[in-house]
């Protein structure tokens, strides 16, 4: 498979006796839109943490853009081009929105040789403008609403100039209109050539977004393919509706 940006082979992770992930294979192509679904506790978050370096996988290999990621610290992976948003937004509370976005500009985007030689201030403004928060650039995260917090989280992830964005439940708890809002934003980012893995419970959003859908159940991958076909697969239906 040429053009694979991220390749995961035989990924496994256990916590004590609990097997969180078992022998998971996955590829993400450059610029692809991938949906990752699964019931609560199916290993989605563990997977994200293993990809981003927050957790160390016990078995398997992760390769990203030709680099083996195994054993690399989280910040090194960010610098290579994997960005994530956190399930519960984790802004830097004592910094202004502009400075929140500035941290990855200084520590990830700038470090990448040959990448954008940016003026941090202008890039900050661009990013905040893109998510519609420019007028609040000097405010603190505590002043934001739930959806604005999610948008800040996305702006900060984008500030590291990633090639792959892992959006971990960025729509949970948002209203119908707000979901559409975020969805449009993610489509825009994808339009700029960024591959996106969307982890989501809101099926409407996942189906509208994904070009390919992967299903995790109890730490195993049980489906991987065209979204419309995957959701009709009997074992996927069973996992969601209960057998």
């Amino acid at each position: 498979m040429t053009g694979a940006l991220l390749t995961v082979a035989g990924l496994g992770k256990r916590f004590g006796g609990f097997i969180a992930l078992s022998d998971v294979d996955l590829t993400v192509g450059a610029g692809e839109r991938l949906g990752l679904i699964g019931p609560n506790g199916s290993g989605k978050s563990t997977m994200v943490n293993c990809l981003c370096g927050t957790l160390r996988n016990d078995t398997g290999n992760v390769t990203f853009g030709g680099h083996a990621l195994d054993g690399l610290a989280a910040h090194r992976r960010t610098r290579l081009g994997i960005a994530r948003s956190f399930q519960l937004p984790r802004p830097f509370p004592t910094l202004t929105l502009a400075d929140n976005v500035r941290v990855p500009i200084l520590y990830a985007a700038d470090v990448k040789a040959g990448r954008v030689a940016v003026d941090p201030r202008r890039r900050c403004e661009e990013l905040l403008n893109m998510v519609g928060l420019l007028d609040k650039a000097d405010r603190k995260p505590a002043d934001l609403t739930q959806i604005e917090m999610r948008k800040l989280e996305l702006a900060r992830a984008m500030a590291s100039e990633p090639r792959l964005l892992i959006a971990d439940e960025v729509m949970a708890g948002l209203s119908h209109r707000e979901v559409d809002d975020i969805l449009a934003l993610l489509m825009t980012l994808n339009g700029q050539g960024i591959a996106i893995v969307m982890i989501e419970h809101i099926m409407r959003a996942v189906l509208a977004f994904s070009q390919r859908l992967v299903v995790l159940v109890a730490g195993r991958k049980i489906a991987d393919g065209d979204p419309q076909e995957v959701v009709r697969q009997p074992d996927v239906v069973a996992a969601y509706l209960g057998s």
Binding site: C52, G53, T54, A73, A74, H75, R76, T78, R79, A83, R84, F86, R90, P91, F92, P93, T94, L95, D99, R102, V103, P104, L106, Y107, A108, A109, V111, R156, A157, A159, S160
Partner: peptide, 25 residues
């Protein structure tokens, strides 16, 4: 400075700092 932003990010939220490319240790 750049160092100061990194320090502040660590103080505020270490996992988020790592995810932003800050070499926290």
């Amino acid at each position: 400075s750049r160092l100061g932003y990194g320090f502040a990010a660590i103080r505020d939220d270490e996992p988020a700092a790592e995810a932003s490319g800050v070499p926290t240790l």
